[in-house]
Nucleic acid binder design. Structure first.
Lengths: 209, 209
DNA sequence: GACTCACCTATTGTCAACAATCGTGGCTGA
DNA sequence: TCAGCCACGATTGTTGACAATAGGTGAGTC
């Protein structure tokens, strides 16, 4: 069930790949019934595109669609940061501070490369989404958009030194949250994501098929 | 397929209702296989809550969850309004102006009651979402959140005179879009939705079972 | 040689039967 | 009388087989 989603998100199936029901059923050792249900779920989550009587393919996002993804994240994560500033517990904020400290250690050890590309960035955003105290908002971000984003992390490869920059931005956002300044937290988060979007827009198109 | 979703959204099944697979299968004249796929889809769309080995129920949102819905809409529709101000065609803006004129006619004819409760409000927000030019953003709003919202329109019953107020706010938003003022359009849209949320918060709890 | 049409294969869509799990009701015992 | 246990019924989860549709392939014709 979740195994299929993981296989897609982790890039085991590259974007655009045709998914045969019978093949997948054998691969995961289940019958086609449950598998079709899993496919429907991933279709709604926008990880697969299904055309009737033809089959399912792993979504293949062009740069335009990635820009759309970032625009949507900008709105939702901005709101999440604002709400987190109002609602996150002092304990959760302290924990998040600890997380960023660990990230800093990783960065200096790995010379800046690892942080942004790897799960560290997701960790931070993950906690902010949860910290919003809004389970609907958090659900849309974590269950839908982040899964989509992870498929394309390879294309969002960080420029050298981007890791330190990202960490700095994370620290600024957390500082705003810590001071319970909702509007500032929202503004900083939106900028943080907009930077990612701009980096994307300036990138050469890399179409695969 | 879509018939089940329509039946739920239109309130044919009231919130909290237990949905039996066999009953629904007979009702819609299909087998349990396709029906289960439909259930999974509606589960992801958050219209049904499914607990394993027990069954599916129509979601039953308490006021807290409705507040979450409005908070999420606020972020997404605000962004949609901002983008619409940048991207909507002059033609689409003119059409939307015509829609609001027709709404005004309906209001004066029906003495203000019909507009806000009925589909008129959705029409406006629907077009803004589309006007954003962001199909992901529009999809989340139209396919997920609005369906959820429509289930609870009865609880959001407008106070007398709210229809005129809503129409006025719609006109202000459209004016900002027409002047290509993205930030203003976002601000006004967020306020427009926040008013709905505040009305909700001040409302007595009406739990159904 | 290129185009058209019919067939054929492979894949998706659907169905009815079987297995597994949960909730309920009644029974038993203290 | 009430608590706990057991068995039964009902509902969900799963499976394999059958039907329908799409795309490719080959022969035939212009």
């Amino acid at each position: 069930m979740a195994a299929l989603q993981r296989a897609i998100v982790t890039g085991e199936f590259s974007p655009g790949t045709k998914l045969s029901e019978t093949d997948l059923a054998k691969r995961f050792g289940v019958s086609r019934g449950p598998l079709r249900e899993a496919i429907r779920r991933l279709e709604i989550r926008r990880l697969l595109t299904v055309v009737p009587n033809v089959g399912a393919r792993v979504v293949s996002l062009d740069n335009q669609q990635l820009v759309e993804l970032f625009e949507t994240r900008e709105a939702l994560e901005g709101q999440a940061a604002r709400l987190a500033a109002e609602r996150m517990s002092d304990q959760a904020i302290a924990d998040l501070q600890g997380l960023l400290d660990r990230h800093a250690a990783v960065i200096s050890a790995a010379d800046g490369r690892a942080y942004y590309q790897e799960e560290g960035d997701y960790d931070f955003h993950y906690r902010i989404a949860h910290g919003s105290g809004n389970s609907l908002l958090a659900g849309i971000l974590l269950d839908d958009l982040y899964q989509l984003l992870r498929m394309y992390r390879f294309r969002l490869s960080a420029a050298h030194g981007r890791a330190e920059q990202a960490l700095l931005e994370h620290r600024q956002i957390l500082a705003a949250i810590s001071e319970r300044d909702g509007p500032l937290a929202e503004l900083l988060m939106r900028r943080h994501i907009a930077r990612g979007r701009n980096r994307l827009a300036g990138q050469v198109e890399v179409d695969q098929e």
